[in-house]
Amino acid sequence: MKAVVTVTGKDKVGIIAMASAECAKHGVNIVDISQTVMKEYFAMIMLVELDGMTTPFSSFADEMKEAGKAQGVDIHVMHEDIFNAMHRI
């Protein structure tokens, strides 16, 4: 099962390090990253593989959100199927 992690907010040092460290902590493997900075606005989308995840999905999502909050960015973790359902026929 894969999930999409989106990280948005004001750019600063260490956002990617924080997000990837959180993933590693939960045994979540990052399979793809796309990231841009537009006028100091940071936006990153990660596709992650959850098969080796060591915690339940909801606690991973909650802890990612909390970790983001500590750095002043919004993090959402959502099952990839919601995007597949909406945007692929």
């Binding site: 999409v4 989106t6 796309s34 995007f83 945007h87």
Partner: peptide
């Protein structure tokens, strides 16, 4: 991978 615009 999913299109970035679609995700956003």
């Amino acid at each position: 991978m999913l299109n970035t615009n679609d995700i956003l």
